[in-house]
Design a binder for these strands. Sequence first.
DNA 1: GATTTAATCGAACGAACGTTCGATCGCCAT
DNA 2: ATGGCGATCGAACGTTCGTTCGATTAAATC
Lengths: 235, 235
Amino acid sequence: MFGRQATLHSRASSDAREGYEQRLGHILAAACGAIARLGYERASMRAVAKATGVSLAGLYHYFDSKEKMLFLIQFRTFSALHQNLLEKLHGVMDSEEQLRVMIRAHLSYFAANMDALKVCSHELDTLSGSAYEQTRDIRREYYALTRSIIERLLDAHAPGASLDRHVLTMSLFGTLNWLYRWYDPAGGPSVATVSNQIASQFLHGIYHLADTADGAAANARGLPRDASQAAARTP
Amino acid sequence: MFGRQATLHSRASSDAREGYEQRLGHILAAACGAIARLGYERASMRAVAKATGVSLAGLYHYFDSKEKMLFLIQFRTFSALHQNLLEKLHGVMDSEEQLRVMIRAHLSYFAANMDALKVCSHELDTLSGSAYEQTRDIRREYYALTRSIIERLLDAHAPGASLDRHVLTMSLFGTLNWLYRWYDPAGGPSVATVSNQIASQFLHGIYHLADTADGAAANARGLPRDASQAAARTP
DNA sequence: GATTTAATCGAACGAACGTTCGATCGCCAT
DNA sequence: ATGGCGATCGAACGTTCGTTCGATTAAATC
């Protein structure tokens, strides 16, 4: 599946593997930049080759196809994003603090890997087949983790609120995944500032709804409300 | 610039113009569906031709190029979205109600024109040159209108809150523009339900921040906060 | 030192794309 | 009738794309 098999028989081949991983990382980073700037379809393999210094044919030593290249980028980024969150969540018990950590971790990762996160936010439906399913599964893990935090948050602070939890979770993801369209960590408020503002507004938006009656009074305003089930699709 | 000049000299040519507009609308709707499903680059002119019944060459009677076709879709959609909001805002004076109207109008329009709004949310950077600038200008009007509502809202209900208003506005747009990725008006909570929940959470997220001290106490949590200026880019 | 294997490249292939060309058909005004 | 024009089409053109092929060099294995 990947370009090369591991041949871990000697120290020499271990060094070679390190060099291989390093060059692969360099190529993927350049590809990431091109796709972030031009979009997947417009970013030609020739442009990626130019950006890396490797020849066009040389790229195909590292992956079988352009689609596999995108898969590697997305799979690695989503995995790292998820792993990063799990680590930062370690030892944090309070659900409010967990949500603050989640938002801060997401923004930090975005600030440090803007190209990669843009490609992951914008090219969500580009892959197909099993490559799509694999990245979708990681995304679902990330979604499920975030949603479980929100669930505990609601159970603890707003138990009776009539809030659709899927809508709630996707609203947050909308705010976070849209960042790549406008937020420049270098030229605006700091990551900490933006994280805190988003987290505070989100949290207090929940809390205040719990305060008013059972949340329904504030939520149902002027229009009838139906208690239909959560929407079908998950990210 | 457009495919045809207006020849309004007789009733006959007026009828012809109506037929022309109708066929153009039909073609754009089909193109919209293809681009929403496949993305702009993958949606070939041959696929659009198949979807409309018109021949490949016949399409070019209605626009000079594929890019102009996308421009027509985006320009018309953004204009209608903006116009629709202005109309629904007519006579509404309370800033809170204005924001609720804005969110409800956006979701209603989305529910009625899913393909078009997906194309407008996802293909924001596809156009170039003056076509890009024209659509960007309408988007900016839409942004400015929404931001002005939020500004008045803050001045009235949370005058001292240390909230970055650009971050606030873009958070809302993130939630709204991300809808196309998950919300199916046919199979989930109603437009009214989702609108109310998003609006209520957003509004109370602001109000509660105004209640606590001057908003800074709740906002600055655990991390230092800098009072840097608003981010550079607007949508 | 011989042999295998990883890494790289220039050149080319076949397909798909956006676009254009020239011709045809039907309608309206002259 | 006839000339002009809007509308439409099949066929083709030139370009760009992802990918493959065969050859060449460098390094590791025996």
